[in-house]
Structures are given as C-alpha cells and as structure tokens.
Design a protein around this nucleic acid. Structure first.
Lengths: 228, 228
DNA sequence: AATATTGCTTTTTGATCAAATGTCAACCAT
DNA sequence: ATGGTTGACATTTGATCAAAAAGCAATATT
C-alpha cells in the first residue's frame, strides 16, 4: 500500500520525459525564438544531464515539428514564413473546430469561464506571458474534453509550431487589439449550438491570423540557448 | 569535388535514421501487427546495433503515433478499435483532399498513371503487398507535389497509424472488392477540376473505410518481433 | 482459494567514452 | 584581394556498462 500519489507530474518520470516536457513548455511559453539554433550539448549542459536522454527528447520534438533538423545534423527552432503560417492556419481551421464540436457535450463550462476570466485579466494587465498561457489553456481544456486523442495531438503539434513565432509577434504588439472569441465559444457550448461553436473557433483562429498579418516580419537571430 | 552521389538513400545516414526508415517501412508494409509488443532490445538485436540509436528511432515513431508507449514504459503497435478508426478517417477526410488540391498544378500525371497501372496489376494478381505499396505510392506521389510539407507529414503519420490494421484487413479479404478511385482523381487533375479531385480523394478514403467495416474484428496477438 | 511476497530475469534508462562529422578561422596559393 | 586548404575546436553519434524499473513465476500468508 505505497502510492506516492504525486498530485502533479514530473516526479519519478524518466529524464527524457521530463526534458521533453520542459523543452515543450519553453517552446510554448518560453524564450525559444524562431531561427534559434539548439545543440544537444547545450541542452544537456543546461539541464545537467547526459546526452542520451536529450537525444530522445529532441527527436520527439523534431518529429512533432517543434524543432527542425537540417541535413547538417544541426537543430533549430523553425523559422516562420508566409507559406508556413498560411499552411499552419489552414490546418488549424480544418482541425480545431472539429475537435471543439466533439467536446461540446463533455466540456466543463465553469472551467472554461474561469480560464477566460484569467485571460481577460492578463490582457488588461498587458501580460503577454499570461495571455498566451491562458489562451492555450482555454483551447486545450476544451479540446481535451473530446475523445479525439489523435486530433488533440495534432493540434498540440500545430500549436508547438506556431508558438515561438506568436510569441515574437505578441511581444512586439502587446495584448491590445486582441478580440476575444472565447466568450462566443462558451455561449455556443451552453446553447449546444454546434454551428456557432465551429464559427467561433474559426473566428478565433482567423482573428489571430489577421493580428499576425498586421505586424512586420522580425529579423533573424540565431544563437545557442541563452540561459535565463 | 567529391560527391558520392548515391542515387537513393541509406548510405552514410546515421544509424538512428536508417533504423527509423526501416521500422517505418515495416510498419507500413511489413509484418507489424496491431497489439504486437516491441522492445528496444529486440529491435537492437534484430538490427545488430546498440540501444542508443534504437531509442531515438522509437521515440520518433511514438511521437508520430505509429507506436504506442504505455505507462509501464512498454511499447507496442497500437490496437485498433472503432473509435480510433472513425477518428483517423475523419482527419484523413479533412486533410487529404486539401493536400491533393494544393498539388493539382504541380503533380506529374504520367507518374500517377504509371503507379496506378502497377496497382491494377497488383489487384489482378491478388498481391496485397504490392497493392498497399502502390496505393501508398499513388497518394504520396500526388501529395508530395504540393508545397504543404506540414500537411504531408500529418498525412504520413495518419497512414502509419492505419497501416498495420489495414494490412490485417486486406490480408483477410484479399484485393477484390477494391474499387479504384485513382482514375477519377487522375481525370480530375487533368481537367483541373478541384471539386472533382476533392470528391475522388474523399471517395477513395470512404470506400476504404466501407471496405474495412465489412470485415470482422481480428483477435489480439501480442508478441515480440518475429524475425521473418 | 485468493492475495502478498520474494527472488530471478528481462528490459529500460542514463552516464561515459571514443570515433566520426561538421564548423570555422587562420593560412596559403594564385 | 579571392578562393581553396588545413587544422583546431565543437558537436553529434554509437557502443558499453551499471543501476533502476518492471515483469514473472514460484512460494508463503491469511
């Protein structure tokens, strides 16, 4: 009768798994910037582990498109360009409304509302960090209520690919001009209105896209990992 | 001025990369069956390499959904069930017609026709192996003509996830009852008829689905890798 | 009989090291 | 100067080993 019963994660997990989660977190919300190069050794040094688990974590992130491996065996955070953005958004527009619809009967609306409240606060405070976290939390709290585990992984992969770039754009422009489709989504869920839910998710994605398009392209910056 | 200039792959590639490609090939066309368990050590022994590159290849395949990792740290070929099938087909129906449309202006119709001819032959001969290979070749010859690299990887991941199961079903039923939507797709491409192309790809996916649904569920079989 | 416990085997995991590969800047020849 | 070469340095890659974890089956306990 010995259940360690960790409330949340990361104890007793293999190093490669913890590394993966940590790097993923940093890609979503941290300081990884598009174009930045990443070395296995750098990661190993930063985290004070050997190369072996680092390789496993990195291969996984490369497979998810979160990192890019060049023929030279060199790894970097993918650069963003117009075609890539267009493609990512096109897939998100197909995929995410469908996931949302599949979650409509299971999702905890209270939870969504709570997250959205926090997001409002983040926007008011101008905290890009918290905005991004809440936005992610909202979407995936919704998506996880579906049984569509394959679609969810795909969506996670897409967000991982967009995140470093979104971060740059938001950092430049701040949190104003962000119109919040989440309340429309919540209303649609409560009304069990599939069409309206689909539309609100699509509008959320499109408005993010419009937001991005209004900002100029940032210049390149290729560097090893800078320790915060 | 020293280009080795290998016509095709696999020389000078890192071991983990060759392993990845080999396992992938075997998942798509080989003897991996749903539910079969896979051990790192088994793979390493089979290929006469050490565990290190095996881990990298396997993590990649797990990230792509081609293999499944349980909490126990044990790895297996995912079992298929009705929900999973439904979800995989739903994503394919969204994704693949879009990729096809994006390829319509660039694809080499002669190549498609050649592949389709080979597929006809495979069906006549009743060769499940060749049918599966040609079917894959056809779809991805088309898809690769698009610039949508992200969508293509996603489609590859989906095919990897379906393949072991499709293999079982086809092995049971043979190659009759397979109606060929490829000729309709080719005609649509030549006519530059986007709607017809989209419809033919969707029909191709749906008819495969119908094909699968007519066959009974195979029983489980969990084993280590059997060397052919 | 049903459930725990124990010890043994298989498997996974992570660190370390040597070899291969790649990068980059200083150097040389034209 | 420009273009190519060389060598020092950094990084990746793959094998090996010890330790941890997990499975398994026979035994003991209630």
């Amino acid at each position: 009768m010995d259940l360690p019963q960790q409330d949340l994660e990361d104890v007793n997990l293999p190093t490669h798994e913890r590394l993966y989660r940590d790097l993923r977190e940093r890609l979503l919300f941290g300081k990884f910037r598009p174009g930045m190069s990443v070395t296995l050794q750098g990661i190993a040094d930063d985290h004070e582990v050997s190369l072996t688990p680092v390789r496993e974590a990195i291969r996984r992130l490369v497979a998810e498109g979160a990192l890019e491996m060049h023929g030279n065996r060199r790894i970097s955070v993918p650069e963003m360009d117009d075609d890539r953005i267009e493609e990512l958004l096109a897939v998100r527009l197909m995929l995410e409304p469908e996931i949302a619809v599949r979650a409509i009967d299971n999702v905890d609306v209270m939870l969504l509302r709570a997250i959205d409240d926090q997001m409002d606060k983040a926007i008011l405070e101008g905290s890009v960090d918290n905005y991004l976290k809440c936005n992610f939390a909202f979407h995936f709290a919704l998506y996880r209520a579906s049984n569509a585990s394959i679609m969810i992984s795909m969506a996670e992969s897409l967000w991982l690919q967009m995140a470093p770039y979104m971060r740059v754009v938001c950092g430049r422009v701040g949190t104003s001009n962000l119109d919040d489709q989440h309340k429309r989504a919540i209303a649609a869920i409560e009304a069990k209105d599939i069409g309206a839910l689909r539309a609100s998710i699509m509008e959320d994605i499109s408005s993010g896209a419009a937001f991005v398009r209004t900002t100029p392209q940032p210049e390149v910056e290729t560097n090893s990992i800078d320790k915060s």
